[in-house]
Design a protein around this nucleic acid. Structure first.
Lengths: 213, 213
DNA sequence: CTAATAGTGTCTCTCAGACACTATCCG
DNA sequence: CGGATAGTGTCTGAGAGACACTATTAG
């Protein structure tokens, strides 16, 4: 019978592409400096005993970058035998999107934010993880208004469009974008003031109702 | 430093939803009888030392169901702490689609094929795996003609439509379906003979070219 | 007033869905 | 010929993309 102790077990790691939209640099990924070696990597850690993957992701980000409160999603398990020179290690890649304010308190010396289209040289298969993460988030943002909450609860359509343009990596048409998002948002009644042109309406996300009517 | 031996490691398992289209029962999932207990489960196994996940999937299917030659794709890692009563086990769920002929040689006594819409009672979270697998395959089949090769290299549009209807779980309109698939297939020039009505053209899958023109 | 931004009317093109017609086999 | 199946013309409605118009603010 299958006794759990019959076989050696792999180490299981998590690696996370933490993405945000930076007003200056657009859609960026968080990288951490490697502890012993030189070079940059995605934050990751080994899974501890009795820990679930999401908790390992949160712990790795608290420890390595001083970031808290994420909602990581799984992407893929990387299991190539030679991928990690420390031995037999499976890595479960994750993606997490956070508003830029939440990265303000990150370790300045050992972390950096790099545009996703030119993430630099990364160890192991971390460049693949960034690609998977970016594709996943782009697909989500194409379908819904700011599903990962890069903006607060209320926003103008201009703010929303700028965030979506940063994620998509290209400009979006103002009127088409508005009509695509309108089924998924509700006007609050309030408007902005103090801006240059006509004041803009404020919207909230529609509470995940049926969108087909 | 992170020494790989510092922490206890989880057992890693794979569980696979093997799906096919059965002429009689439609879209079905392969289940295996549990060895020691009663009840049915998806075929799975523990990952052996130095083995990659895809190989573990193939081994589990050869051993438990006498099936070979799959192309499993990863779906999700199930990591809930209490999910397996044998201890700390992560399970990497997979999906594999095979043509029905390839299941002809399966163990008759210990396996069965059950329609995906009523998979019966399954252990652990295997019902969730079936749901994920079905959703993944339906999404792939909605976009491309038989991407997983349930049919052979050549087929009529009727054959193709019947397979897609079985996967989708509902009827598809003949003319609309044809126009949706035509950009992704090439006529061979040959036609069927011996059928009841007008002979049908035979097609092949288009060799993964750019579909936008 | 002009510049700037927000919101919307409307035209066109494409495409899915639907219906119906023609085409070609068997018997 | 009739019955069955394959292939296609065509209409309609929905929706994306694009352009341009109106609306409302600051200065």
């Amino acid at each position: 019978m299958n006794n759990l102790t019959d076989y050696p077990r792999p180490s299981v790691a998590v690696d996370t592409a933490v993405l945000t939209v930076d007003p200056g640099s657009g859609f960026v990924v968080l990288q951490v400096r490697r502890a012993q070696g030189r070079g940059w990597a995605l934050p990751g850690t080994f899974l501890h005993e009795g820990e679930i993957l999401a908790d390992a992701v949160e712990r790795s980000l608290a420890d390595k970058a001083n970031i808290r409160g994420l909602s990581p999603r799984q992407l893929h398990v990387f299991d190539a035998l030679g991928r990690d020179d420390r031995g037999w290690v499976l890595s479960v890649a994750h993606v997490a999107v956070v508003p830029p304010e939440q990265l303000a308190s990150r370790f300045a010396e050992t972390t950096r934010l790099v545009p996703v289209h030119a993430p630099g040289r990364l160890i192991y298969d971390h460049a693949d993880i960034v690609r998977l993460a970016v594709d996943e988030v782009r697909a989500r943002y194409a379908a819904m208004p700011d599903p990962d909450g890069l903006l607060g609860a209320e926003f103008t359509l201009r703010d929303l469009r700028l965030v979506h343009e940063a994620v998509a990596g290209h400009d979006l048409q103002r009127d088409t974008f508005r009509r695509a998002m309108e089924p998924h948002i509700v006007a609050t009644g309030a408007t902005t003031a103090g801006g240059r042109g006509r004041p803009a309406e404020l919207f909230r996300r529609r509470p995940a109702r049926d969108t087909t009517r």
